[in-house]
């Protein structure tokens, strides 16, 4: 008798547990407003990334086409995988002094691991991470970017 009781108890418990699970999924089925996925290319316009999102490395330039990079190369040294190459030139100032200046700031997005050490260690806050995350290109070479703009100069320090 006990076995028969247990037999039906098993069936009852099994059906109950199945019904509990079905209630959860069934409830979501009838709640289409609970949909959490986003329609990505359509919502591109209003897609707001978090301000700290590490998208890609950029060098901000002001309206006078000036950046803050002195070409010291600390970021290059700190980069764990050789993503950054800083090329400098020696410029001679009118008063005869020799001064190192940035020639090309080469950033290989394909190698970047977004550890953030370059931005953290930069003494003059010349580089930041932008929020742009759409990196897909057809050619690997396009991932190698020169961050400083054509003809840009070092921003003069406020006297």
């Amino acid at each position: 008798m006990r076995e028969i009781y247990n037999y039906f108890k098993t069936i009852f418990f099994a059906l109950k547990s199945l019904w509990t699970g079905m209630k959860v999924t069934g409830a979501y089925f009838f709640k289409p407003w609970k949909i959490v996925t986003q329609q990505y290319p359509e919502n591109r316009e209003k897609l707001q990334m978090f301000e700290r999102t590490k998208g890609e490395l950029v060098m901000p330039h002001n309206e006078k086409n000036e950046h803050q990079c002195t070409g010291c190369g600390i970021c290059e040294m700190n980069c764990p995988n050789g993503t950054i190459i800083v090329k400098t030139v020696i410029n001679e100032t009118p008063d005869g002094k020799k001064k190192k200046a940035l020639d090309k700031y080469i950033y290989n997005l394909g190698m970047c691991t977004f550890c953030g050490l370059c931005v953290k260690t930069c003494p003059s806050d010349a580089i930041v991470f932008s929020n742009k995350f759409e990196h897909a290109v057809f050619n690997k070479n396009k991932l190698v970017k020169t961050l400083n703009k054509e003809g840009s100069t070092l921003k003069k320090r406020a006297e």
């Binding site: 999924t25 069934g26 089925f29 289409p32 949909i35 959490v36 329609q39």
Partner: peptide, 13 residues
């Protein structure tokens, strides 16, 4: 579509 709605998705669209 059904499984998408159950899983809080939109499904084929």
């Amino acid at each position: 579509k059904v499984c998408a709605f159950i899983q809080n998705r939109v499904g084929p669209n």
